[in-house]
Design a protein around this nucleic acid. Structure first.
Ligand SMILES: Nc1ncnc2c1ncn2[C@@H]1O[C@H](COP(=O)(O)OP(=O)(O)OP(=O)(O)O)[C@@H](O)[C@H]1O
Length: 672
DNA sequence: AAATATTACCGAGTG
DNA sequence: GGTAATATTT
């Protein structure tokens, strides 16, 4: 191994070489926190510790990938380190010990929309909608129930605090939460929150804790500020008696409050142990000072108690981040696409660029411009590929193949059939749930396809099921093909844009056929779903061919690029308009911008457009309030931009006079 | 009564 | 672009 002193500073060195006992590393962005984890793993392995006795956890998928790939670069043995997101780890344990817990059948993972569907069914079963049409919708119900779990606070609290207008339904919603819990246990359904709940419960059980923690001698957790109460408790339990746990984080980068993350977790960590070592890292190894000046200015406007200041070690101080104003989204998109093209010509490789945004829909015009210029890109975050209707449809067939009692999957499948609607589906799923084998299920379906026009569609479904159930569960590709061929015509009826969706499914097929086991595939799709890639990529793409990264700020956590463009720094986008009545949420938005700024190594540009539409009404977009304080604004360079419009000149430019009689002309046009 | 077509509404971020 | 309420057809 290289000489650690050469590649680490004093504080990092201390963190890397302290192998026993609890450690908290708390430090600003780009100060080499992940690097500490990277080299500490390496150090442990060099000392003869077996990689599989190291556990690396974090909250987001990308951060966890980053952690493991970085370490593996130095030593291939690091690939054997056990790690991933809290959820994926929890699922692995749950799967391993589900029999011990008392589940009779294999677990079925519910993704977010499945879970909403299940809640909806439970609400209907309790007649909550018949009583009162104004009962909250399934999305709201899911949010409330999930928030209560992730913040470890009672449903009544959540409703009083965040949904006071639903106070009258507190008792109903509590009943619903209980019913939903029972519903899941009965059917071996597991939603994302359950994974954490079960993991914590398993760790609180003597026997299971032994079994789970025994293999791990060293636990490290990155981005600890993003953990919620549940994950915090899990971390402490994993540390166990040895207390060999290192957590790493930055309270100024806490951006997952909406998922129940609480930066108190990181602050309180030392109090759980008698001998916790706290290490602070002061130097920033990532960015040029000019970029950090901007980040610091923003940091200074935060009302946080733990003052930090970022100092770059780079000799080159770089240039101030540029701020660019545009008239509308299209000009903004064109400019960004051209900027990237120019930057490429200057020799900066494509994958060293990133475009970051608050929400993905802001990048749609940009994606169009990039495609025009043949610039390949990959999007991270936003509407998930695997949650689009057509993907969920085809996955439902596969789910049935794994478990014929998955009623949520049956519901989807049957609803696709001509002449069959909610009522028939309810009847059918009830019968199906009573059957013990696929043959009997098929008989049920057949008995319903006697007379009516249901016959045709049901019969073709029956035929497909018969075929698919002959094939071995491990031949994922073949099973997929059978269902795909069957689904194609249904999809063409259902969607006008089926030709695009068919491409998605082709990609899906490719990914799916790499699996040896259908069940593994389905679990992976729920827990670590593949991102939609516009330009299909081989798994082993060379670095220089890697596409441009377009990412939400949330998903960019822990990553870095030479050149970063943050688009849409608009008041109402960041901070997002519907959080403006809540001080805490505004602070979180500010931290979000801070995270975005500190992703850039060498060059940073911020863009916004003035012309905005909200609900069909034109409005004037102003610069984000986070960038207007003089100290922050002066850390930016606006000299390269068009000048900022004010509302008045803008509306004047918007309504030019019309010099010909247009209406008359159009009237003529229609007459001929 | 049930299925299907139409309209009206709303928009985040993650696993 | 998707869902839920509402109108219309079968
Ligand atoms: N001692 C060092 N010498 C040289 N480069 C370093 C050193 N420490 C960190 N770096 C580099 O600085 C960059 C940022 O490090 P790293 O990603 O570990 O920071 P981080 O604290 O995890 O940041 P964030 O909080 O944004 O996730 C990386 O490119 C890393 O290689």
């Amino acid at each position: 191994m290289e000489d650690l002193h050469k590649i680490l500073n004093e504080s990092q060195y201390e963190a890397v070489t302290t192998l026993q006992g609890p450690i908290l590393v708390i430090a600003g962005a780009g100060s080499g926190k992940t690097r500490v984890i990277e080299y500490r793993s390496l150090n442990l392995i060099t000392k003869g510790i077996h990689p599989s006795s190291i556990l690396l956890l974090t909250f987001t998928r990308r951060a966890s990938q980053e952690m493991i790939t970085r370490a593996s670069r130095h030593d291939p043995r690091c690939k054997d380190i056990d790690g991933g997101t809290f959820h994926s780890f929890a699922y692995r344990m749950l799967k391993r010990y589900s029999k011990a817990i008392g589940f009779k059948q294999d677990l079925i993972v519910l993704d977010e929309s499945d879970s909403k569907e299940a809640i909806h069914r439970c609400a209907n079963a309790l007649n909550l909608y018949n009583k009162d049409k104004r009962f909250p919708k399934k999305d709201t119900l899911k949010t409330i129930i999930s928030m209560s779990i992730n913040k470890s606070s009672p449903i009544s609290e959540i409703i009083k605090r965040e949904y006071p207008h639903f106070t009258e339904y507190i008792e109903d919603i509590k009943r619903l939460a209980v019913a939903y819990g029972e519903y899941k246990i009965k059917r071996a359904y597991i939603d994302y929150d359950d994974m954490l709940i079960y993991l914590k419960a398993m760790l609180e059980d003597q026997g299971l804790r032994q079994a789970i923690t025994r293999p791990y001698k060293y636990v490290m957790i990155d981005e600890y500020q993003d953990t919620n109460a549940l994950q915090g408790a899990i971390s402490i339990l994993l540390a166990g008696k040895t207390g060999n746990i290192m957590v790493v984080g930055d309270d100024a980068q806490s951006i997952y409050g909406f998922r129940g993350a609480n930066h108190k977790n990181i602050m309180d960590f030392p109090s759980f142990f008698e001998n916790c070592k706290i290490i602070r890292l002061e130097l920033n190894y990532r960015s040029y000072q000019r970029i950090l000046d901007c980040a610091n200015a923003l940091l200074n406007t935060m009302d946080n108690k733990y003052q930090k200041c970022l100092h770059s070690v780079k000799d080159n101080i770089g240039v101030r981040p540029n701020l660019y104003f545009f008239k509308n989204t299209y000009e903004e998109a064109e400019w960004i696409a051209d900027f990237i093209k120019d930057s490429l010509a200057d020799g900066v490789p494509l994958h060293h660029h990133a475009v970051l945004c608050r929400s993905m829909y802001l990048t749609i015009p940009l994606q169009a411009e990039l495609s025009k210029r043949n610039i390949p890109y990959e999007t991270y975050g936003g509407i998930k590929f695997y949650e689009t209707a057509h993907v969920k449809d085809i996955l439902s067939y596969l789910k049935i193949k794994v478990n014929i009692h998955d009623e949520i999957a049956w519901h989807r499948i049957l609803m696709l059939l001509e002449g069959i609607g909610t009522k028939t589906v309810e009847r059918l799923t009830t019968y199906i749930s009573e059957q013990s084998s696929i043959d009997n299920v098929i008989k049920v379906l057949a008995s319903h396809s006697k007379n009516s026009k249901k016959a045709h569609s049901l019969n073709s479904l029956i035929k497909v099921l018969e075929n698919a159930f002959q094939i071995n569960k491990n031949d994922v590709g073949a099973i997929f093909d059978i269902f795909f061929e069957y689904y194609k015509p249904l999809m063409k009826n259902k969607y006008d844009d089926w030709h695009i969706r068919i491409n998605d499914l082709e990609t899906l097929r490719q990914v799916a056929s790499r699996y040896k086991d259908l069940e593994d595939m389905l679990a992976d799709f729920a827990i670590e779903p593949p991102e939609r890639s516009v330009y299909a990529q081989e798994p082993e793409t060379k670095d220089e061919d890697r596409p441009l990264c377009i990412s939400t700020i949330h998903s960019s956590k822990g990553l870095e690029w030479d050149t970063v463009i943050i688009m849409g720094v608009i008041d109402g986008i960041i901070p997002i308009s519907f959080c403006l009545d809540n001080e805490e949420e505004i602070e979180e938005e500010k931290r979000l911008l801070y995270v975005a700024i500190t992703r850039a190594k060498k060059r940073l540009s911020l863009t916004l457009h003035h012309e905005g539409k909200r609900g069909g009404i034109m409005q004037f977009n102003k610069l984000s309030r986070f960038l207007t304080p003089p100290a922050v604004h002066s850390s930016l360079d606006v000299s390269l931009s068009n000048k900022e419009y004010d509302n008045k000149t803008f509306s004047q430019t918007q309504i030019p006079t019309c010099s010909s009689d247009l209406l008359k002309k159009i009237f003529e046009y229609y007459r001929n």
